[in-house]
Every structure is written in structure tokens, then in C-alpha cells.
């Protein structure tokens, strides 16, 4: 069975953008015809992976978005794509975007048996320490415990995503990353990588090397920049 990679994290941690970037990266390398990107974020239909469906299809990316059918894409209900269990029991490579709250925990509880059966998986906790409810160890621990207990799955890595979107600077990334590393040490979960927007990559590479990964934002509208 192919690999399953789950991205979870608090509301607004950047997990959806990071899952999209990861799926695109895998699409170029996977032995499977298409990498499946499952949008299981049921919390709120604003700025979700399914919004990128048209863009990915238009670019001919080797990604298939698994999300509620188009007619229900904006429906404000706990809405899982019906084929998710079938797909988890099929040989494929899958990336899962999962809400990091009690609703995400509920979804994880529902699918985790099938994920454990596949054995070959990673579950990442995405942290932006500049977000409310993610700025202290207690808050991050509360979140990771909630998901780990619900899913009976341990996080295999933390993804550090310190940013203030357009106002991010290299110094801010460094400061935020230090805090995330502090959380990771206390939680005894390794830091898988530090995600930064492409424009910061060159400057930070000498310090962080291969633990640095550059990402591109797909869901953030261009017009928000420069005010």
C-alpha cells in the first residue's frame, strides 16, 4: 500500500496550503498515476483545499482532489467525501488535509482504523506560533493530545510554519521556529521541516539547510497584498 500523509493543525495554522504544496511535490515523484489529496476539513468552507480544484485541473497536475461533490462544496455541514473509506482501503498515495479541532478529531476517529491498517503513514502537526491558541506549549499540547487520543495515532512529525503572511521576515521566521522547536522538544515529536514562502528560502538556507522547505500560497488572494 502507498503512503498516507496526514496534515493536521489548529485552525489557520497553514495546514491546507502545506498539504497542497506537499501533494504537488509528490505528484512529480509518485509511482501512482495521481496523488490523491483528500479535503477532510469539515470545520468551515472558507479557504479550503477544494477551492484549488479548478486550478489544479487546469494546470494538468497529477493530483486528484477528494472532496465533497461540487454541489456540496459550499455546504455548511459536516460533509465527508463518500469514497474516502473505499480509497483508504485501495492501493494509492494519499495526502489528507484534516481539521485540527474536535471535528478533525471526530473525522480522524472515523478513518484511523484504516490508516493504521495501511501501516505506511505519517501524521504531521502544523504549527504557526503566531496564531492564537498556538502560542504556548499548553495550547499545542492540548491540540496534539486531542487528535492523538481520538485517532489512536501518534504524530510522527511537527511542521514549523511561523509566519505573519505578507509581513513575514527572516528574523520573524527564526524567532517563531525557535518557539516551535521548543514545543517539539517538550512533546518529544521531531520537527519534520520548516516551511517558508519561496521568497525567504535563499536567505534562510545557509542556516537551516535541508530542513527547510519552500512553499507557494495557492488559496490566499493576491489583492490582500500591499495595503
Amino acid at each position: 500500500m502507498g503512503h498516507v500523509t496526514i496534515f493536521s493543525g489548529a485552525f489557520g495554522s497553514g495546514k491546507t496550503e502545506i498539504a497542497l504544496n506537499f501533494a504537488l511535490e509528490r505528484a512529480g515523484q509518485s509511482k501512482y498515476n495521481k496523488v490523491l489529496l483528500a479535503d477532510l476539513d469539515t470545520a468551515n468552507p472558507y479557504f479550503v483545499a477544494r477551492d484549488a480544484r479548478d486550478m489544479l485541473e487546469a494546470k494538468g497536475e497529477k493530483i486528484s482532489i477528494i472532496a465533497p461533490v461540487r454541489e456540496l462544496a459550499q455546504a455548511d455541514v459536516p460533509n465527508l467525501p463518500v469514497e474516502i473509506i473505499g480509497l483508504l482501503r485501495t492501493d494509492n498515495e494519499m495526502v489528507i488535509d484534516l481539521a485540527g479541532d474536535k471535528f478533525g478529531a471526530l473525522v480522524l476517529g472515523y478513518i484511523s482504523g484504516h490508516i493504521r491498517a495501511r501501516e505506511n503513514y505519517d501524521m504531521y502537526l502544523v504549527i504557526n506560533p503566531f496564531r492564537p491558541f498556538s502560542s504556548s506549549l499548553d495550547e499545542v499540547m492540548e491540540l496534539s493530545n486531542l487528535l492523538e487520543r481520538a485517532g489512536k495515532i501518534k504524530f510522527t512529525g511537527i511542521i514549523s510554519n511561523p509566519n505573519l503572511v505578507e509581513e513575514t521576515t527572516a528574523d520573524l521566521i527564526k524567532e517563531g521556529h525557535r518557539r516551535v522547536v521548543g514545543f517539539a522538544t517538550k512533546l518529544k515529536i521531531p520537527v519534520a521541516y520548516l516551511a517558508v514562502e519561496s521568497k525567504h528560502y535563499q536567505e534562510l538556507y545557509p542556516e537551516y539547510g535541508s530542513s527547510l522547505k519552500q512553499i507557494k500560497l495557492f488559496l490566499r488572494p493576491d489583492w490582500i497584498r500591499g495595503f
Binding site: 503566531f130 496564531r131 492564537p132 505573519l164 509581513e167
Partner: peptide
């Protein structure tokens, strides 16, 4: 202190 907030969160904190 600068934080990254959704409009809804910023309003609630305000």
C-alpha cells in the same frame, strides 16, 4: 505584540 488573526478572532479579542 503581533499575531496572525482571522477577522473574526480579531473582532472577538477587540
Amino acid at each position: 505584540e503581533r499575531v496572525l488573526m482571522k477577522g473574526n478572532e480579531a473582532l472577538a479579542e477587540g
